[in-house]
């Protein structure tokens, strides 16, 4: 949460700075596929975020000591491109933030992938943030879920993620960078839509129990849209070819 000294007004006349209503998602576009070498891949634009995800495996886990004879191990790497932000150039390479995001993202997918199908193997998930504007971990999870489905790796669910935050008395959905910097609270959440399980939950700032309930409602409602766009993205490449030969 940013300093309150030069905090901008985030809500003006009942609207957010980018004109959105409190519970409104930024425009979201998902494209399945795109990277020929990966077993599965996806590209996503979410507001000004642009994220690409690629999946390799399952393949023999190396080095050997990382193998689990009972199930596959998941390795996940989230990283931000040095040219991804509107501000200054970032040094490339993982920092502490990226390492933590990689870990919580990995745990989302460890829950839904049918790991027991591939003992001794590893599944690699790579998430590259090419352009960032707040909510990149949610964008990365939403994108990686599509990439995993494209790879044919069996999963019990197709997770999605987004975030809520609090500005003044209002809970707002899908925080962009400036809202993320100056809001009173920020809560990224990943959900398995099949039974509504919470797969990722982080929070910092100040929220009441009622705020959290309200926030979860916003997330689930937005989740219907995000899930639908994920499913449409997965069907699109096949329907495009099928339609070519219709009639």
């Amino acid at each position: 949460m940013g300093s309150s000294a030069n905090k901008p007004e985030l809500i003006v006349n009942g609207k957010r700075l980018d004109g959105r209503a409190f519970g409104e998602l930024r425009p979201l576009k998902i494209v399945a596929g795109g990277l020929k070498n990966a077993a599965g891949s996806a590209y996503l634009e979410w507001g000004n975020n642009k994220v690409i995800a690629g999946v390799y495996g399952p393949k023999e886990a190396l080095p050997k000591h990382t193998q689990d004879p009972e199930k596959a191990v998941v390795k996940c790497k989230y990283s931000m491109a040095p040219f991804s932000s509107l501000e200054e150039h970032n040094r490339s390479g993982p920092n502490r933030r990226a390492i933590e995001i990689s870990k919580v993202t990995r745990e989302v997918f460890e829950k839904v992938i049918l790991l027991e199908d591939f003992p001794g193997s590893e599944i690699d998930i790579y998430i590259e943030v090419l352009q960032s504007d707040g909510g990149t971990r949610a964008a990365g999870i939403t994108c990686a879920a599509v990439a995993l489905a494209m790879s044919g790796i069996p999963m019990t669910d197709l997770p999605y993620a987004t975030s809520v935050g609090k500005v003044g008395d209002h809970m707002i959905l899908d925080l962009n960078k400036i809202e993320d910097n100056y809001s009173d609270a920020d809560m990224p959440v990943a959900i398995g839509p099949r039974n509504g399980e919470i797969l990722l939950l982080q929070m910092d700032g100040t929220l009441t129990k009622q705020d959290i309930k309200e926030g979860m409602d916003l997330i689930r409602k937005a989740g219907e849209t995000i899930s639908r766009l994920q499913r449409e993205a997965l069907r699109a490449p096949y329907e495009r070819i099928s339609n070519k030969y219709k009639n």
Binding site: L35, P94, Y126
Partner: peptide, 14 residues
Amino acid sequence: MAELLPLASPEYES
């Protein structure tokens, strides 16, 4: 600077 991203090839590593 150049990054050979691990998502670009099964032979690239972090």
